[in-house]
Design a protein around this nucleic acid. Structure first.
Lengths: 219, 219
DNA sequence: TGTAAGTCGACTGTTTACAGTCGGTCGTAG
DNA sequence: CTACGACCGACTGTAAACAGTCGACTTACA
């Protein structure tokens, strides 16, 4: 937990609030702040070296992202995910990414999008031998890119709002299980489906990917 | 805009932040705060009779809901939606509600859910002769209920995060156009599809409903 | 010994004050 | 008349202080 201060001292291009947001997100999704852990504002503000007012703005955002749950009298704690919630999160994720895939399928000239996706998969492939964290990172990047390439800002925003929950799910289920679902081939299948323009196939591929990911996590 | 203070003076069961949140949401989705309008913190805090700190927490939340857009140096303004964005919002909405419908279809005993949905439609029917606002309210209630009945909290939360944008879309497209899509029959079709348990049919019904709604709004 | 009242402490909700920064405007010089 | 520069106002970012509330612990009394 002492590492919480470090990220803030570095690169000061962003506002303190955004820095605190990133630091907290990382701390939560990395397990540094364990699920169920009660958060005390004064404690956190001191650790992050920021004022409570600024911290509270960040906490509101995290709360909305579903990383924190509010107890009585505004007491915040790190959200705890049970198996059903993980499945639910991945169901919503699947719905969003299915929309993304379908949207890309309907794109007349999706060559550039296909190329971009392939590029992210290449990065994944190169990360195979790296740490679990970096493999997860490259996987998330693929899926985020999938949403971004649609040009649907609302879709991207919704997905990003879910990103924290997804990361928590992976952490909760265990990183080892998490990376199991990140096979390069699976992702190539998705891109291939999009390339054919078969929206139905793309949707099925995405859903299968998500279902197995969720199933593996809760197993 | 003078009406902004009123909601806060009444029922003080919620925190000031939540009251401000509701007041601002209403002000934006009702058009009282016009799209593109620049928001000044001191101005708003004075109107709502709350401090800037408390106000800022509410603003962060609205920002995340997509009702506000951030300009340079954190300048906030009411988000302006163009036609593409409205279509995009409804595409995401369709994806979420399709998931809801599919989930309900797969529910073994969905009799209770069906009944709840029928009830909300009855309310819609009774609201036919009331104001546009009330008709919209009853329509939103149906769709929110659709998501809630799945028991998927993440789905409900994602939908509610989108609710503000949906309301803005309706306001932007014109309330008259908005209510056109809220025919009782359409909604009965959705419930009927869910009742049969045909997930594919339910999905198609939802998507048709959403597509026509979006199309009407931007027409 | 059990219970009830009272006190202490911790935490959140809220407000007020201060600092920094950007843009505009007015004045002046070329 | 234009261009440059210093001042001024407005607004956000941030910090510190105040107030209220709930729970826990202690103590007194039956």
């Amino acid at each position: 937990m002492a590492g919480l201060t470090a990220p803030l001292l570095g690169l000061q291009k962003k506002s303190l609030r955004e820095q605190a947001l990133s630091a907290l997100r990382t701390a939560i999704t990395s397990g540094e702040l364990a699920p169920g852990r009660h958060l005390v504002e004064t404690e956190l503000s001191e650790m992050l070296q920021i004022s409570r007012g600024t911290l509270r703005e960040a906490l509101r955002q995290l709360e909305q992202e579903g990383l924190l749950s509010a107890g009585p009298r505004g007491r915040l704690s790190v959200r705890h995910l049970d198996e059903k919630e993980i499945r639910d999160i991945f169901a919503v994720r699947a719905a969003l990414e299915s929309l993304a895939a379908r949207t890309l399928c309907e794109l007349p000239d999706r060559a550039h999008a296909i190329q971009s996706l392939r590029q992210t998969i290449d990065v994944m492939e190169a990360a195979q031998d790296l740490s679990l964290e970096e493999r997860i990172e490259s996987d998330m990047n693929f899926h985020r890119t999938l949403c971004r390439l649609t040009g649907n800002e609302t879709l991207l925003h919704s997905w990003e709002s879910l990103e924290g929950s997804i990361r928590m799910s992976i952490m909760f289920g265990g990183l080892e299980k998490g990376v199991k679902n990140m096979s390069v081939d699976r992702h190539r299948d998705i891109v291939a489906a999009i390339e054919t323009g078969d929206a139905s196939l793309a949707r099925k591929t995405i859903r299968a990917h998500m279902d197995s990911a969720a199933a593996n996590l809760v197993a």
